[in-house]
């Protein structure tokens, strides 16, 4: 059953057609990845799905509910949470306060303490730095904070936009292991990545985005063996 379904999604930036009517879906419990080169429209897809940028036409359906026109701030309550491109953590707030903002959508929060413990357990480095101002964190720590913050709202689906950006290979592996863990514990994942190799290695299914259109879709493992993909995205 599709948890998130995107139908004929079109987005324009002025006269430029950034997305030319794309279709994809994410089933409950899956890791689905959207790969593609710079400027293919990956981040545009992520931002329009969550309502951060206006959609020209098409529909976004989540849990059988049309959320195309739902304002972004209401989607968290429905169980959608996004780790945006470039982390976008709140630099002036402490690590703890950033996590607090992650739970902002839950008004009467009885599980806040447990949730924050859960995040600290997953990212021990965040606990060490909990009272530090977020701008003093390293790139990897900022990524962990952004993910921890997104988890604080108990999402059913986590949308990750370029989690590997600017991280060392070792850290990328660590972050991707954690993504798999989060998925195993029941959170559905939509992953947008430039690092196609890494993304395909953990994903169930994949879509390839090229200048605003989906040109290929299928099983992630099969895609890894696809010669075109190998040439274009895996550098082999």
């Amino acid at each position: 059953m599709a948890l998130l379904e995107v139908k004929d999604l079109e987005v324009n930036y002025g006269v430029i057609r950034a997305l030319k009517g794309i279709n994809f879906h994410v089933n409950k419990g899956e890791i689905v990845t959207l790969i593609g080169a710079n400027g293919a429209g990956k981040t545009t897809t992520m931002q329009s799905v969550i309502g951060l940028i206006p959609i020209k036409s098409g529909h976004v359906v989540y849990n059988d509910q049309d959320i195309t026109k739902t304002p972004c701030h209401k989607l968290v309550n429905l169980g959608m949470s996004q780790v945006p491109e470039g982390r976008r953590i709140f630099q002036e707030l402490t690590v703890y306060e950033n996590l607090m903002m992650g739970a902002y959508s839950i008004k009467k929060n009885d599980t806040f303490k447990d949730d924050i413990e859960m995040v600290y357990k997953r990212f021990p480095r965040l606990e060490e730095r909990k009272s530090q101002i977020a701008s003093t964190l390293s790139g990897g720590e900022q990524q962990m904070l952004a993910m921890g913050r997104a988890l604080m709202s108990h999402p059913d689906i986590l949308l990750l936009d370029e989690p590997s950006m600017g991280l060392s290979p070792l850290l990328v592996t660590e972050i991707f292991d954690i993504i798999q863990e989060i998925n195993k514990e029941g959170t559905t994942i939509l992953l947008v990545e430039q690092n196609a190799k890494k993304a395909l290695s953990i994903a169930d299914r994949a879509y390839v985005l090229e200048t605003g259109s989906i040109v290929l879709e299928g099983d992630a493992k099969e895609m890894m063996n696809n010669d075109d993909i190998k040439k274009a995205y895996l550098g082999e």
Partner: peptide, 24 residues
């Protein structure tokens, strides 16, 4: 306060604040 922290968050990054569920 929760609202006060939300104000700081909005002043820093409206988009990220919306992702947290803050009504900007």
């Amino acid at each position: 306060t929760r609202t006060g922290r939300a104000m700081v968050a909005v002043s820093e990054d409206k988009g990220a604040a919306q992702l947290m569920g803050i009504n900007v």
